[in-house]
Deep mutational scan, measured.
Amino acid sequence: RELEKFANEFKVRRIKLGYTQTNVGEALAAVHGSEFSQTTICRFENLQLSFKNACKLKAILSKWLEEAE
């Protein structure tokens, strides 16, 4: 439930900031050390990743959002 809420909020905030899914994937290299594909970001936003992978990505995306805003 919390993950679903974060995924929805993330998408809204990403769009408000003017980032595409591809931009986010590339920008994550600075935060995490490796890029993520547009497909991975899309699957996260649509809750199509495994729970374990989504939880890992949530932590990375939270950190990125803090820096982007």
Rank of each mutant, 00 (worst) to 15 (best):
R1F: 12
E2M: 03
E2T: 09
L3P: 06
L3M: 07
L3K: 04
L3Y: 10
E4P: 01
E4Q: 10
K5N: 12
K5H: 12
K5T: 10
K5I: 12
F6H: 04
A7P: 01
A7C: 10
A7L: 00
N8A: 15
N8K: 15
N8V: 10
E9T: 08
F10T: 01
F10R: 03
K11E: 03
K11A: 06
R13M: 06
R13T: 01
R14V: 04
I15V: 10
K16F: 01
K16E: 10
K16Q: 11
L17C: 05
L17F: 05
L17Q: 02
L17E: 09
Y19L: 12
Y19I: 08
Y19F: 07
T20A: 02
Q21C: 11
Q21Y: 09
Q21S: 07
T22C: 12
V24K: 02
V24T: 05
E26K: 15
E26H: 07
A27C: 09
A27M: 15
A29W: 01
V31W: 08
V31H: 06
V31A: 13
G33H: 06
G33R: 02
G33M: 03
E35G: 12
F36I: 15
F36W: 10
F36C: 06
F36V: 14
F36R: 01
S37G: 12
S37P: 06
S37V: 02
T39F: 06
T40S: 08
T40G: 06
T40H: 08
T40L: 13
T40E: 10
I41L: 06
C42V: 09
C42K: 15
C42S: 15
C42T: 13
C42A: 15
R43Q: 14
R43G: 08
R43P: 02
F44L: 03
E45F: 01
E45K: 03
N46T: 05
N46A: 11
N46G: 09
L47C: 15
L47Q: 12
L47R: 12
Q48D: 13
Q48S: 08
Q48T: 11
Q48V: 06
L49K: 00
L49V: 09
S50T: 10
F51S: 11
F51D: 13
K52I: 07
K52A: 13
K52V: 14
N53V: 15
N53T: 15
A54V: 03
C55W: 11
C55F: 13
C55E: 12
K56Y: 08
L57R: 05
K58A: 07
K58N: 05
A59I: 14
A59N: 14
L61A: 07
S62W: 13
S62T: 14
K63G: 11
W64K: 07
W64V: 00
W64I: 03
L65H: 01
L65F: 01
L65V: 08
L65Q: 01
L65A: 03
E66T: 12
E66K: 09
E67W: 10
E67H: 09
A68N: 10
E69G: 06
E69A: 07
E69D: 09
E69Q: 05
